[in-house]
Computed example of a mutant assay.
Amino acid sequence: MSYYFTIIGTKDNPLFESTFGTSKPGAGDGTARFRDEAAQMNQFIVHAALDLVEEVQWTTKDLYLKKVDTFQNNHIHAYITGGNVKFMLLMNADPSLTAYSNYASPPPSRASMAKQGGLLAANPTSPQTEEAVRGFMGEVYEAWLKCIMNPFYDVNSEVTSPVFRGRVSAAAKRYL
């Protein structure tokens, strides 16, 4: 499973981006396996899901919005902060099966996804995955609060802190 995580500011500008893979034993080494064209497409897919996030955020009182969108083999989860900053996590169970340039091809079958194993990361629609993503988002939110409380941080500016990046990576290894 490969992940693309981004934080979107109040002006729909990206504040932070990170890609990583599954770190669970027997499932991966923590390296994202996105195809070459996925770098730009992941950004596009996540920003396209912002409209759905803005619709869903008014229908619930929770900050964690769960899965808000799917596109081909990608699942997008969202978390909204009190300041309307959006945490977006794109999950792709098998990036090698995702052909961004070929829209006529059918999505991979559930049978091919089941062959990847019964681990948590192999099924992006399971309740266990939802809980893992909720835990990841909660831990990143705590790190985010510490980051924005820094008096030298400007609102809606890119986060370049290596400490923050390290905390996001540690949360990804722990939960995803």
Rank of each mutant, 00 (worst) to 15 (best):
P25S: 07
T81M: 06
V56Q: 09
W58Q: 11
I45N: 01
V133L: 14
L119P: 05
G83R: 07
E54P: 06
G9H: 05
L50Y: 09
T98A: 07
P25K: 06
A132V: 03
K61A: 12
D36R: 09
L63Y: 02
G21F: 02
A99W: 13
V46M: 10
P95Q: 12
A122M: 15
T98N: 13
E130N: 14
A114C: 14
P95V: 05
M113W: 14
E131I: 10
G83E: 09
D29Q: 05
L89E: 00
S101M: 10
G21S: 05
D51E: 08
P95N: 08
R33S: 12
E55S: 11
I45Q: 01
A39K: 11
N92V: 04
V56D: 07
V53S: 00
S105W: 07
T70I: 11
G82D: 03
A78Q: 01
L63V: 09
G135Q: 02
Y141P: 03
T129L: 03
S126M: 08
A39W: 14
T70N: 11
V46A: 07
L89I: 01
Q40D: 12
E55D: 15
V68W: 00
K66V: 02
A132S: 15
L15T: 00
L50E: 04
R110Y: 13
T129D: 03
V53D: 00
H75A: 07
T59V: 06
K115I: 09
E54A: 12
D51G: 10
Q57W: 08
E131G: 09
P25D: 02
G26L: 05
V85M: 02
Q57P: 04
D62F: 07
D94A: 14
V53M: 04
D62T: 14
L65C: 03
A114H: 13
T125D: 15
K86Q: 09
P25V: 03
L50F: 06
T59M: 07
A114P: 04
A121C: 14
D29S: 09
G28E: 04
G82E: 10
S96K: 08
L89S: 00
Q72W: 11
E139N: 08
K86F: 06
L119E: 14
G21T: 03
P95D: 06
I8D: 01
D12A: 09
M88T: 03
D12H: 11
W144Y: 15
M41N: 10
M91S: 08
N13I: 15
D51C: 09
S18Y: 05
G83W: 11
Q128Y: 12
E54H: 15
I8M: 12
